[in-house]
Design a protein around this nucleic acid. Structure first.
Length: 112
DNA sequence: ATGATGACTAACG
DNA sequence: GCGTTAGCCATCA
């Protein structure tokens, strides 16, 4: 039984538009737990059994695929991103800055 | 309850 | 600009 924190993480990640990416810190901040960025990644790792979750669109603040090793195979993460038109090279999203999607500016806060 | 862990970040040197 | 250190805090053993 996932905690509410997890549910909130999933709710935000699910709203990430196709072809866009986000960072752990941004999600954590939006959830009001700016210092719990690590927990965001932790939640995503456990999200495998839940509904579709674009976890591959969530990267660290540098745009690196920090969580690719959690996929099977790890290359799957980069492939999923490329499948959405996102350029990936050397485990990094090239135009991360342009593709960045900030939940605090594009998603209205609501009860999760 | 205590200590270790981690898909992170920011601050130092 | 890069490697190291230190905070952070929800889980888990």
């Amino acid at each position: 039984m996932p905690s509410d924190f997890y549910q909130r993480v999933y709710s935000v990640v699910r709203e990430i538009p196709n072809g866009r990416v986000c960072s752990y810190g941004a999600i954590a901040k939006f959830l009001g737990a700016a210092r719990s960025s690590r927990m965001v990644g932790f939640a995503l790792k456990q999200s495998g059994v839940l509904d579709f979750l674009p976890a591959h669109r969530v990267l660290n603040r540098n745009g690196f695929l920090s969580g690719k090793h959690a996929f099977s195979p790890p290359e799957l993460m980069a492939e999923l991103l490329r499948a959405e038109g996102i350029a990936v090279a050397n485990d990094q999203v090239l135009n991360f800055k342009e593709l960045f999607w900030d939940p605090s500016e594009n998603l209205n806060y609501r009860e999760f």
